[in-house]
């Protein structure tokens, strides 16, 4: 390549990059379409009555108790063990789903194989199958005499009625979250960037690692966070397979129910609030992630 440059005339025409979109003005932009008042009013009324007011009740109820009571309930050994199991199992399950969810999305988007449409539809099964049904099915499958438990028992792996069982149930519950966030991004990935990478000498693996994976990563992380958040609060599919031994395989949502049944409202409200706060804290990075990925992958 010649070292000299074809310079000079380009300086004058640098067409401006697109300006960032800004929306200003009053609370509401005028519109010729009708119905804003009634639909907005109903939306806020319904949202407030059904969701916000009851959520507020939780906070109010928790405030009825003294700090000592709250602290004691929130940090009781049994509660701490339940948090540890809920968070730990949810995290491990989300990691497993990140991997297998990514794999399933990849296979569904990129390859052709028999019954692909059915497999694609099946991915949503955990959304559609009532959690109690999933729970008893998984417990039966992984029990020592179940179809899968029978295979694992001889090699010393116990799934049902152990923390491992909790992970299995949470993997089931979380899978569609990862697949359904990664799949559309993979689908929309332009073929030409992969061609560009190949024409620049990248191997297929390099193209995957350096071009495809980074493009999908924001969506995959969003899916991971969604699966994690869902797993944290999951109840129905877990309690049948978990065994529910205090300090061992008792998840936080179950502990809330146990407290309620013992009329320990302070305990229930405290553990509930703790989990709620953590869920909100999780929502935040999800939104930030989504905004960030949208910015980064703005139309090129």
């Amino acid at each position: 390549m010649s070292p000299s440059t074809a310079n000079s005339t380009l300086a004058g025409y640098d067409d401006a990059p697109p300006p960032p979109r800004a929306w200003g003005g009053s609370w509401r932009q005028p519109s010729v379409l009708p119905g804003f008042g009634i639909t907005m009013g109903f939306t806020l009324f319904y949202l407030g009555l059904l969701v916000l007011l009851p959520l507020m009740a939780l906070i109010f109820k928790a405030m009825e108790f003294s700090w000592e009571q709250i602290w004691a309930a929130a940090t009781a050994p049994r509660a701490l063990a339940a948090y540890r199991l809920s968070f730990g199992a949810a995290f491990i399950a989300a990691v497993i789903n990140l991997f297998f969810g990514g794999l399933v999305s990849w296979v569904l988007v990129r390859y052709q194989f028999p019954f692909k449409r059915i497999v694609d539809g099946l991915v949503d099964l955990p959304f559609a199958l009532p959690t109690a049904v999933a729970g008893i099915a998984l417990a039966t499958l992984y029990a020592p005499n179940g179809w899968i438990g029978k295979l694992l028992d001889p090699i010393g792996i116990k799934v049902a009625y152990t923390p491992l069982g909790v992970v299995v149930a949470l993997v089931f519950i979380g899978l569609p979250f990862v697949v359904r966030t990664v799949q559309p991004v993979l689908q929309d990935l332009n073929k030409d960037v992969e061609e560009a990478a190949a024409s620049l000498g990248a191997s297929r693996w390099q193209t995957f690692r350096r071009v495809i994976a980074p493009s999908v990563m924001p969506a995959a992380l969003t899916g991971f966070a969604l699966a994690f958040a869902r797993a944290l609060g999951e109840y129905g599919s877990v309690i049948f397979i978990a065994g529910n031994l205090p300090m061992k395989s008792e998840i936080a949502p179950l502990l809330i129910i146990i407290k309620l049944e013992q009329y320990d409202y302070a305990g229930a409200a405290t553990i509930g609030s703790t989990m709620l706060i953590v869920s909100f804290l999780l929502l935040l990075p999800i939104n930030v992630l989504q905004r960030w990925s949208r910015l980064r992958s703005a139309e090129v």
Binding site: L55, Y235, P253, F280, L283
Partner: peptide
């Protein structure tokens, strides 16, 4: 409601 545990 999606991000709130059903138990809560």
């Amino acid at each position: 409601p999606f991000s709130v545990s059903p138990v809560i």
